[in-house]
Design a protein around this nucleic acid. Sequence first.
DNA 1: AAGTCATGGGTAACTGTTGGTAATGTGTAT
DNA 2: ATACACATTACCAACAGTTACCCATGACTT
Lengths: 251, 251
Amino acid sequence: MIKDKRIKKIKEYVMEHESASLDELVTVFDVSKNTIRRDVQELVDHGELKKVYGGVSAIPKKLESFQDRQVRNLQEKVLISKKASNFIEDGDFIFLDSGTTTIEMFNFLKEKSLTIFTNSIDFIVRALPYENLNVISIGGMVDRKTNSFVNTRNIELLRDYNIKKAFMASTGISLVNGVTNASPDESELKKTVVNRSSEVYLLVDHNKFDKYGLMTYCKLAEIDCIVTDRLPEENYQEYAKENGIQFVIAD
Amino acid sequence: MIKDKRIKKIKEYVMEHESASLDELVTVFDVSKNTIRRDVQELVDHGELKKVYGGVSAIPKKLESFQDRQVRNLQEKVLISKKASNFIEDGDFIFLDSGTTTIEMFNFLKEKSLTIFTNSIDFIVRALPYENLNVISIGGMVDRKTNSFVNTRNIELLRDYNIKKAFMASTGISLVNGVTNASPDESELKKTVVNRSSEVYLLVDHNKFDKYGLMTYCKLAEIDCIVTDRLPEENYQEYAKENGIQFVIAD
DNA sequence: AAGTCATGGGTAACTGTTGGTAATGTGTAT
DNA sequence: ATACACATTACCAACAGTTACCCATGACTT
């Protein structure tokens, strides 16, 4: 493997595992300890990681809470987001919810020509270099837990736009409680988006099933398509069939 | 395959894979290493890719254009923004315009406790780690020339907020044309902010005097305080005296 | 037929990368 | 405090990749 690539991988590996011993890295990347040392040194010089005796650890950033979540189950999130992105075509007007799964869609839509309505600050920032993406921000108060805009006073303006497809995130879904999220500030917006959008896609990994958060922002029946990484229990499949919900499994 | 086409393909290939070894490219495109080198060299010369030992890697896109402008006259901008920040007190509810001068205020207010209304994407991002800053974004369409939100549909909501102090930027000011900026998309918002704010501060370096852009968003008389880096011509001083405008010189 | 250009193959000097080894430093358990 | 294991640093030799050339070939142009 090219040195550059290896270093990037090392960074990702350490980020994902919070920290790693040098021996661990030696095994994983199959190069000598010496080389690992040099690679790590380079990353440390660039302020990407920090050294600890016997290994290396990710830098606890101020907004780590979000970053942390982002790497957990990263592979599943990438698979799900890739699958979901297949539903997006050039010229679409879509809504993109904030969240660690939905943000992964970025890589799969950055080359398309789209108009994207979003409350995700991360997405707005990542989309800045891509002129082909017409990004419209919902605005509102910055919420540091989710890096998104909440409590937005201007939900009204959503009603002026005809969103074709909405890609939603959730902290947990269940047959009883529907699609939920943690914060009341967000749910008003999500409700409106679900109502206003022709097609609603929900991106949830298998861990989210049978869990629920504080607020329900829509019923499961209001979702058109659930993109996830494992076929859910029988009762979900029945419910889906009854309510015309499509299940898409990414693997 | 023709050379031009191959080079384009190589670029695409590397972009897609983030990076690639020369050997890899040799196999994929079935030409000699020598040719791959020449092709890659051409791409590097055009700044499309960068060489790394053992291969090539895609250039991580950046928001360069804005960054560039940011360093021009940086010292003046810092001086002006520092001076302007003196008017801000803990607990204030302020508006912060987008622009290369106003963004420099960030360092001088990041430790204060404030509620900040802004259209500047850069400010929103930089403020993310600072929990003491309550940031409210105006939202709207992303404008990549200024890294701000424009064309915002929800100017109405501004009327609900009582902004205490507004810190405005401008591409040029003159006695005849007042305070101007380049884009029609922005001026509607700026107009409203100037109207709604108890105190309006204008941050302009001396180069901005006697220049004007396409759109006038307010008269000079509507400004309460102009922060700049040199004492302007006599006629500006007279005008200021007549209209109760305070001049603050940063040096 | 001569000229131009892209290509492939080769050589030699050079530079960056790698893994090993030895000396030194650091943390831990007794 | 001492011994021990392991981590770190520094250095070097081997090697892989790079640069800057060379020339031969074939396709295409003038």
